[in-house]
C-alpha cells in the first residue's frame, strides 16, 4: 500500500506541469497543438502516460491526441539526446552535399537512419526540413545554435569538443 502511495505521489508530481499547461489553455480541445508544444518543451518528449493524461483531461480519445502527435514532425514520442544535431535536408543543402555531413556524424556516433539517438542519451542526429538559411548551405543546428557552410570534419569536431568538455568536467 505504502509503495503504491509513493508511486501515485510521484506520478502526481510528474504531471503537475501538465496540469498547469492544461489550465492555461482552459482544457480547450482546439488548443491541442499549443498544449502539446508546451508539454513537449517541459518534458522534451511526449510519453504514453502524458498523451493519455492530456486526452482524458480534454475529454477526447487518446487515439486522437496520438494522431495529432504523430502527424506533426516536431512532436517526439521518444526521448532525445542532450545535444540534438539537426541537419538541414532542404534542396539548397542537398546540392551542397549535406548527406556527407550526415554520414560523418552517423559514423562518428554509430548511429543510422533507424537509430538516431545514442544509448547514453547524449546525442541525437536527425535531418530537418529547410531552416531558411539556404544562403549558408549546408546548414546545421546544434540545439539552438546555427552553423553555416559546415564541413563534415567540422561537424565531427563539434562532437569531439562536447565529449572532451564532458570528460574534463567529470
Amino acid at each position: 500500500m505504502q509503495e503504491t502511495n509513493e508511486k501515485t505521489a510521484a506520478m502526481i508530481e510528474h504531471l503537475a506541469a501538465v496540469n498547469k499547461i492544461l489550465e492555461k489553455y482552459n482544457c480547450d480541445e482546439s488548443k491541442l497543438i499549443p498544449i502539446l508544444q508546451e508539454v513537449q518543451e517541459e518534458y522534451k518528449y511526449l510519453s504514453k502516460d502524458v498523451i493519455s493524461y492530456v486526452a482524458t483531461s480534454l475529454d477526447i480519445p487518446p487515439a486522437k491526441v496520438y494522431g495529432v502527435a504523430t502527424f506533426y514532425a516536431h512532436f517526439a514520442l521518444e526521448p532525445k539526446g542532450k545535444y540534438v544535431f539537426k541537419l538541414c535536408d532542404g534542396t539548397a543543402c542537398h546540392v551542397k552535399k549535406s548527406h556527407s555531413i550526415l554520414h560523418a556524424l552517423y559514423d562518428r556516433l554509430g548511429l543510422s537512419d533507424d537509430k538516431q539517438t545514442t544509448d547514453d542519451l547524449m546525442f541525437t542526429v536527425e535531418t530537418v526540413s529547410c531552416l531558411g538559411a539556404c544562403g549558408l548551405a549546408p546548414v546545421m543546428l546544434v540545439n539552438e545554435d546555427v552553423y553555416g557552410q559546415v564541413k563534415p570534419e567540422e561537424a565531427v569536431a563539434i562532437i569531439d569538443d562536447i565529449l572532451a568538455k564532458a570528460a574534463a568536467a567529470e
Binding site: K31, P34, V68, Y72, S129
Partner: peptide
C-alpha cells in the same frame, strides 16, 4: 500568432485552417 509544428502540407490553406483548429493538418 499560431505556430506550425513541422508539416509541409499545412502550408496548403485548408490544411492550415485545420491545424489552427487543433486537428491533424489534412
Amino acid at each position: 500568432l499560431k505556430y506550425g509544428a513541422g508539416a509541409f502540407v499545412c502550408g496548403e490553406e485548408t490544411a492550415l485552417i485545420h491545424s489552427i483548429e487543433g486537428k491533424r493538418g489534412e
